[in-house]
Amino acid sequence: MERDNQDYTALWLQFKNGNKDAFAELYHSHIKSLIAYGSKLCADEELLKDNIQDLFIELWNSRENLAEPGCVKFYLFKALRYKLIRADKIHHSRQAFTENLPGAGGAYESIEAPVESAIIDKEISDSQINILRKSIAVLSKRQQEAIQLRFYQGLSNEQIAELMGVNYQSVSNLMYTALCRIKKNMKAPVFTTALATVFHLFF
């Protein structure tokens, strides 16, 4: 991801000067990653949509006062994460009377997702990547977030630590336990009937 950072910094400057094309390009070059990341933090598509929308509108309206980020993608991730966690808290404080939710932070802070949700739609497909997807889907939210940032978004462990507000060693531990769980899940009969095919996918 560092490769293109130079170009984005240049775009960022143009956007700060009020160039709408540059702003559009910043949006279009990051939106896919932002949706992918946001959907790990927030299951409600409408809420995610609103927050990404607000984020960019706020950026545009305060463009003159914005700092120049070292890495545009990281900056956007951080801003979106902040917004989503805040939105999630507001959302859950409203429901708190009727629902017994773990922790003050609502669903996001829940440590482990129930294993029952493993049987997503009770549909067990043969596709190997699907098996891996399902094995990831039952990890805790934080484990899922770390895995995505690391392997799909290309963030360094240091960036992940800063983004998630923990230290480097915690990210490393989180990643390790996540990988152990994926490995275990891949072998669970819930996920696959054909053990042999999975073997080479995840050692």
């Binding site: 896919k32 949706i35 891996l132 997807r133 392997f151």
Partner: peptide, 20 residues
């Protein structure tokens, strides 16, 4: 590589268009 592949969102085209 497999983890990266498994994280690939399925369909963001419509959503990103709507938001824009």
């Amino acid at each position: 590589q497999n983890l990266a592949k498994a994280q690939k969102p399925l369909n963001t085209e419509r959503l990103s268009k709507d938001i824009w």
